[in-house]
Design a protein around this nucleic acid. Structure first.
Length: 465
RNA sequence: GGUCGGAUGGCCGAGAGGCGAGGCUCAGGACUGCAAAUCCUGCUACACGGGUUCAAAUCCCGUUCCGACCUCCA
């Protein structure tokens, strides 16, 4: 096992402060991230959460922790059932279709698959066991209509994560007190409605409420207590409060640190699902590469709102291409693969609650130093800076040499390389005999094809735009 | 009504008492046959009004505006 090499500090929503991370078990970290409800294709807000927590996971791994990363799939809920009716296909076909869409989007952005990716419907047994426990110890009740509720007034710690008081909550308009003891009591389990999928329980046939699955699955894969529970800001209440209520009622310590990512916004507002298709991940990937979209989504601090615009995405891509170009040049000059390493500044930034923007400033400085080293033909300095740039990019999931981002058309690019080299030889010959009209004509032709030429002291380089 | 967050230069985006993060754009320069790439220089900002302090973008009080959550939510 590698040594833990640094002191990590993380923000905990539960106490609204950054503090030193101390794992429950030395050398190990358990993380549970609330994943997608698979009822529509992912938009960039969904995937930002995936990217942010992927960076956390990579950093924890880099500094020596053995990370168990669980991200669930909610494959049963009201919207999935509605969509099934609307699309006239079974509910499970809807869930699988969009689960695949999410998996594809994660893969396109180099978000590593979780250690475990449990589906809610695969854990009904664990949910029933949890409900039995909660009913047996008086925390929950089954009033006979097929629903099972958690009695929130019995819990002293309820709403401590969101710092609210039970009586201050707006009461739900549709609160039905026929069966509920209190309007704020929430459903662990919902009685079956005609035509809906259902599973048998001691209290009648039905399906899981939204909150129960995460408590049951986090417990199944990470135990009664684990280090980090993550999700979007909007999950704090009610979802995470209710998870805490269920789990603590069962006598579990549950999550020690709560981390929440902020939204991608448009026009200052939270992205809404009614915006249409334009901000779906796969639509945006028609305009920029996955590595560039990831660079953009990862570049703001995870707790800051990221105001999306195509202009900002483009300028972020320009910034990334400068770094990428540097690494490509460095690789050519060093005549070997660049070995990733982690700079002290990058470590300091990441340990400060994953201060990626601070890390980006360090990367820019390293690129500048490296580019200057290229001009000075200082290969020692170049090797060091290139190595540190690559190491940082690897943690951010944006290593241009990562095979996941490699161009799949390798055999084609060999042919292309040969053809362009041929043209460049002609151009060099023309330049040597000072026939600049001819050499510029070749360059202009290549430019028109989307190929950019750079003349360097050691010859001409080309890149496809 | 309760709870939480935000307002920083042309744009994006950090910071959280004292040297103007960084990027993008733009302008000028170096290099180049000309370009491209790269490097250098410049563009001196923190919503408003008070206060604390030797010193405030940062802390305190007040104000305005924007956003989020309050049982669908990344």
């Amino acid at each position: 096992m590698s040594k833990i090499t640094s002191d990590l500090n993380l923000y905990n929503t539960a106490d609204r402060a950054v503090s030193k991370f101390i794992p429950l078990n030395p050398g190990k970290v358990g993380i549970y991230l609330c994943g997608a409800t698979v009822q529509a294709p992912p938009h960039i807000g969904h995937i930002r959460s995936g990217v942010n927590f992927d960076i956390l996971r990579r950093w924890l791994t880099a500094i020596g922790y053995d990370v168990t990363f669980v991200r669930n799939v909610t494959d049963i809920d009201d919207k999935i059932l509605h969509k099934a009716v609307h699309e006239e296909i079974p509910w499970w076909a809807v869930a699988m279709k969009y689960e695949r869409a999410f998996s594809d989007a994660y893969a396109a952005l180099n978000v590593a698959p979780p250690t475990y990716e449990p589906r809610a419907t695969g854990h009904i047994t664990q949910m029933i066991q949890l409900m039995e426990k909660l009913i047996a110890n008086g925390s929950a009740y089954a009033p006979g209509n097929g629903d099972v509720y958690l009695e929130v007034r019995k819990l002293k710690s309820y709403l401590t994560l969101s710092n609210q008081k039970l009586d201050d909550l707006l009461s739900a308009d549709d609160a039905d007190l026929t069966y509920k003891k209190d309007p704020r009591d929430f459903a662990l389990w919902k009685a079956a409605k005609p035509g809906d999928p259902s599973w048998p329980t001691p209290w009648g046939d039905g399906r899981p409420g939204w909150h129960l699955e995460c408590s049951a699955m986090a417990h199944a894969y990470l135990g009664e207590a684990f280090d980090i529970h993550g999700g979007g800001l909007d999950l704090i209440f009610p979802h995470h409060e209710n998870e805490i209520a269920q789990s603590e009622s069962a006598g579990w310590d549950f999550a020690k640190i709560w981390m929440h990512n902020a939204w991608v916004t448009t026009s200052g507002e939270k992205m809404s699902k009614s915006l249409g298709n334009s901000l779906q991940v796969m639509e945006i990937l028609k305009k920029v590469r996955g590595i560039e979209l990831r660079w953009y989504l990862g570049s703001a601090h995870y707790r800051s709102m990221l105001e999306f615009s195509f202009e900002a995405l483009e300028e972020s891509s320009v910034n990334f291409r400068r770094i990428e170009g540097f690494l490509q040049r460095a690789k050519g000059l060093l005549k070997s693969d660049i070995q990733p390493s982690i700079s002290a500044q990058f470590t300091a930034a990441m340990n400060n609650d994953l201060a990626v923007p601070q890390a980006l400033a360090d990367i820019s400085e390293l690129v500048r130093i490296g580019n200057t080293a290229i001009t000075d033909n200082d290969l020692t300095t170049l090797a060091k800076s290139a190595s540190e740039v690559r190491g940082a990019l690897e943690i951010l999931g944006c290593d241009p040499f990562d095979p996941i981002f490699a161009d799949s058309s390798n055999s084609k690019s060999e042919i292309l390389d040969g053809l362009i080299s041929l043209a460049l030889e002609q151009r060099s010959a023309a330049r040597e005999r000072k026939d600049f009209a001819a050499s510029d004509a070749i360059r202009d032709s290549l430019t028109a094809l989307g190929i950019t030429i750079e003349d360097t002291p050691t010859g001409s380089r080309w890149t496809v735009n």
